[in-house]
Nucleic acid binder design. Structure first.
Lengths: 266, 266
DNA sequence: TCGGCTTTGTGCACACGTTCACAAGAGCCT
DNA sequence: AGGCTCTTGTGAACGTGTGCACAAAGCCGA
């Protein structure tokens, strides 16, 4: 394109907005599907629809990668798949280690979605010696003691934490110490890591809570358009006596060890 | 602002920013932990640290709920736990149905964290009659045929889809037809639902791809702390002549890396 | 060669989200 | 009572993200 402008839109090396990066995988998935159907080209409108976004947004997102489209025609599917894959770094191999082989770790180990994108489950680890040694998804679970060695030998670059919440920070510390700078955390805890280390979190219970919020809003707005019921307009923090009652909705026998239950996405 | 401040922030009925709603569960978790440790009050600074956010942001977030703090002191933990729980709708019971009892569905069914927040797994469903009938997590898996009836009888309000991607849309359609307006989708597909229905998506593969993007960037920027970021940025693609020609960068080894990532998800 | 049609790439305006910085309250000590 | 210290609540600046609308650019048919 080269608009001859002083500064090139070249966000190339740096500057691709986070929001855009988060959507690229979405476009890639849609493009891959098109590719398999043998579709040669797509317009921003079609691709946007397939990815569930606004077409203007899609065009702007793609423009950060470069001018890979043809006006009046659209985008070459294969070419775009390649460009996005490269931008996301999927053209290389990413050995992943899953730490914590409980319900979730077990499920992830068997999840096919990983291998299909350049991600390779290189190792499964667990602190429980009863678990270590078991064969899961064709791999032998290793013990946490070997973590550093495994990371080094297999060149693991991404760590997936699926341990119970209390153990997560410790595991993260060891991963970081071992040189890992990217962590996907499923444990319901806030991980503290040194600068330069990336942590992304997946939390099922948070997603459900957000849904509950909207669901509640929907049901309370639909029937009676009237304002909220909230009469507590005059209840200073002096009477916390009412509060406690809620903390435990379901009588799940003192579970709240601080979200101690299985890590699970939740 | 414009809103004549009669008595309260009045963001009550509507208007709590999405970004804030998404963080409330985080605060709630941190507060619950404090509560269990018997801590009576917290300052925005402490709570922010525990939740991993900026204190100013936390104060602003909480201010949308009302003025529940005490200047010079902080927030009453119990009281705040109650207020946030109520705002999120966690003071009521939310029956959840999990559709698709594969690895992930199985793991979720066994996850204990559900009950701790007002969510109750009311039913497990699967399209495979070999799966239906099995006992998982103390429940008998039902067949998809009974979906509508189960939703009605148990008052299910939230559906969790953990089926393979191809089946997701069909399941979503049935859930919506059955009256469900909140869906948590784990299948790697874009679900199309009528307005008024909320869909939240959790995609492990996307999270990994985002991590890969940053990881790649890190390794290519690390060596040179100075300016020059990515030298390997490939040709500026300024020459439009290149793009069209590369319609098939496949085997013929195009101008770039030469290796086409055979990426495809499940 | 020249319009006409299509679709990209992007300038611009607006909405949303984040952060700073500080006045206003609240409690405490003298 | 007066002043000091602490912390909230929020105005305002700033940064990021979104979406419209349109000029530029490629393709095609006459």
């Amino acid at each position: 394109m080269a608009t001859g402008r002083t500064e090139r839109p070249a966000h190339r090396g740096r500057g691709i907005p986070e929001a855009t990066v988060a959507r690229l995988p979405l476009y890639l998935r849609a493009l891959t599907a098109l590719s398999e159907r043998g579709v040669p080209t797509v317009s921003s409108e079609e691709l946007a629809a397939a990815a569930g976004v606004n077409s203007a947004k899609l065009r702007k997102d793609l423009s950060y990668l470069g001018s890979y489209g043809t006006r009046g025609v659209g985008y070459d599917v294969e070419y775009l798949v390649y460009q996005i894959s490269r931008e996301l770094g999927l053209t290389q191999d990413w050995p992943v280690a899953i730490i914590g082989i409980g319900n979730l770790g077990h499920a992830l180990a068997n999840y096919g979605g990983f291998a299909s994108r350049g991600f390779r489950v290189a190792a499964l680890l667990d602190a429980d010696r009863a678990v270590a040694g078991q064969r899961i998804a064709g791999m032998v679970v290793r013990h946490m003691d070997d973590l550093e060695q495994i990371v080094r030998d297999d060149g693991v670059s991404i760590g997936v934490i699926t341990t119970p919440a209390p153990a997560a920070q410790g595991v993260a510390d060891r991963l970081v110490a071992a040189g890992i700078t990217s962590i996907l955390n499923f444990a319901p805890t806030v991980l503290t890591v040194p600068e330069g280390v990336d942590v992304r979190k997946v939390d099922l219970s948070i997603e459900l809570q957000i849904l509950a919020f909207h669901e509640q809003r929907k049901s309370s707005t639909e029937p009676a358009p009237g304002p909220a019921p909230v009469p507590a307009a005059v209840t200073p923090a002096v009477s916390p006596a009412v509060a406690p009652a809620v903390t435990r909705p379901t009588a799940s026998g003192g579970d709240l060890g601080g979200d101690l239950p299985e890590v699970m996405p939740a």
